[in-house]
């Protein structure tokens, strides 16, 4: 037996893993190292471990009662990064209606300083999923706005919120994207068909419609509350 090496994982004497120089570490660590090398789990140990664990758990429960802990989803952690790195222009403002510990639901107000919508204030709600950034946040416009790319229910047509969302994008990108919708409304991706047609065919009239809507008033049959 002495000198005869058999790999504890594959039981073969010829196994090259024996070259691993971890002998000085305790045996259990050594095995764990190998486990991670081979992707194999020493399972008789497993069933024995369950028994040990059961005992430990009973002891622990008797001792403390185990305070339930809130855990953070991977999505929350990534969002935490996005939020703490936000770098917004003065015209954009973020609020957390549920306080500092709920970052998953927040509001952004945008106050464009140029273009058709200058000096209006538009509020957006953000709802972020626990599997963010695998999934884009759900964004709605809470301010009723006369806009070719935002409909009267607050749906927003912004490519990075749906078909072009990628996990490398972040909250900052979305807010800039939303800001861009106000400086460059675009009639080619219409959600409000009428507004898009007016912008395309008669920009002067579009401008006055936007002004009327923001001041609080009717455009056609639709009433817009004041938003400036």
């Amino acid at each position: 037996m002495a000198g005869q090496y058999t790999c504890p994982i594959c039981s073969q004497a010829s196994c090259q893993r024996k070259r691993t120089k971890t002998r000085t570490i305790s045996v259990s660590l050594f095995i764990l190292r190998l486990l991670s090398l081979c992707g194999l789990f020493s399972s008789r140990t497993m069933i024995r471990l369950f028994k040990v664990k059961e005992k430990q758990r009973e002891l622990a429960e008797n001792a403390s009662g185990g305070a339930p802990v809130k855990k953070q989803s991977a999505g929350e952690l990534r969002l935490h990064k996005d939020i703490s790195e936000l770098n917004l222009p003065k015209s954009c403002n973020i609020q957390f209606p549920n306080g500092k510990d709920d970052l998953m639901n927040f509001e952004v107000s945008i106050r464009p300083d140029e273009g058709y919508y200058a000096s209006g204030t538009f509020l957006f709600s953000f709802q972020v999923s626990p599997i963010y950034p695998h999934e884009a946040p759900k964004v709605k416009c809470k301010t009723k706005v006369y806009h070719p790319n935002i409909d009267l229910e607050g749906n927003v047509c912004l490519n990075i919120l749906r078909e072009d969302w990628k996990p490398v994008l972040n909250i900052n990108t979305i807010i800039y994207g939303l800001y861009h919708l106000f400086t460059e409304p675009n009639y080619e991706d219409p959600l409000n068909h009428d507004a898009a047609a007016v912008l395309r065919d008669n920009p002067k009239m579009f401008e006055s419609n936007v002004r009327r809507a923001m001041a609080g008033g009717y455009v056609g049959q639709t009433y817009f509350p004041r938003s400036m």
Partner: peptide
């Protein structure tokens, strides 16, 4: 990623 159609 899930396929999402553009709203417009």
């Amino acid at each position: 990623p899930q396929v999402k159609f553009p709203l417009c």
